[in-house]
Design a protein around this nucleic acid. Structure first.
Lengths: 194, 194
DNA sequence: GTCTATATAGAGATAGAC
DNA sequence: GTCTATCTCTATATAGAC
């Protein structure tokens, strides 16, 4: 990727700090210091804290869309793709044990702050929801059932991330990810016996 | 219950505000105003923000212990008791749609703040974990399996609370709570066929 | 126990020189 | 585009009168 503009650097650092410390706690001074610029310069790029939050959410959306697009290429079956989703919990285990799920924790925080960007943050969850739903649709599930399954996988993953953060238990994460895989097999099996 | 002391009133309001707005965002001024006392008076009762957080967590622990104790009386079988736990998601649905799970969201927030009380907040989750485990033990599950099941029920509930907050979908909550009940039946069935 | 007044630090945000 | 200097507001916290 090479060089990033100051603006891009700010977004990247802010993304990281919002995840690791939370949005409310993270200050402009903190971001500016990590980027290596003055606070005055910071305001040249972003006028308000909401502006930078918006840019961070936008970046997360773009990043996740690229991720999903890669999975479409890397995995041949919808089942493999769904499992790739659940394995975020394993690939990013270190971060998740420390800070939870970036999507779930940001939405939760903004929701409590009654922040105008809450719905935008939720749209990242919606992105995964729609993508998971499309995988289930490819197996011939009805619209509503495919969506129910998508929400179920999302909820399961979110719960695992939350408890992983609370108890710092990698074995638990491995067990639950295997559990999702098993549940998926059963869901697909029930489909063929209908 | 009748009259509450000023101290008790502060703890109660702080408990509510930490849940609804988050710990970091809630200020002494905000709590004092809702209690109807001056900031100066506030400091007579609690010297630091950490002190009041500690009192809130302590109160939550006591409240939850009383809740679990009631469930032991109200429900005759371990299965009924576990289902009472999952039905918090239904009883408290309005609050959960608005603010998520009070236990999970506080632990998550404190974890990001790297707050010294993070582990104390986690002990509320541990309380439920141990209690759920003891219910599974009564069915003859092995120690480790009973604990795995307890964590599974906890994670599932946490995930449902997170997504309920994101999507404000009561039907989803009802479906998932029914799903936990069904999973529980299957887990108990697998036990008798071993 | 409760109040007013105040100290101090940090936040978000702006102005203007370079 | 980057900086220093500054404004304003709000936060935690303290002192001391009643």
């Amino acid at each position: 990727m090479g060089k990033l503009s100051t603006r891009e650097k700010i977004i990247e650092i802010a993304d990281q700090l919002f995840y690791e410390q939370g949005y409310e706690f993270t200050s402009f001074a903190h971001i500016a210091e990590k980027v290596g610029i003055s606070r005055g310069n910071f305001y040249h790029h972003f006028k308000t804290k909401d502006d930078i939050l918006e840019a961070v959410i936008q970046k997360r959306l773009v990043d996740r869309e690229a991720l999903l697009s890669n999975w479409e290429k890397d995995a041949k079956t919808p089942k493999e793709r769904i499992l790739l989703y659940t394995r975020i919990l394993i690939f990013n285990q270190d971060k998740i044990l420390q800070f939870g799920c970036p999507v779930g924790t940001l939405t939760s925080e903004l929701s409590k702050l009654d922040h105008p960007m809450t719905d935008q943050a939720g749209s990242i969850m919606t992105l995964f929801r729609e993508w998971l739903k499309s995988q289930f649709l490819q197996y011939g599930f009805q619209e509503s059932e495919a969506d129910d399954h998508a929400l179920h996988v999302l909820a399961w993953s979110q719960g695992v991330a939350t408890l992983a953060n609370t108890f710092k238990d990698t074995e638990f994460v491995n067990r639950e990810v295997a559990g999702i895989s098993q549940w998926l097999d059963e869901a697909l099996l029930s489909l063929s016996t209908q």
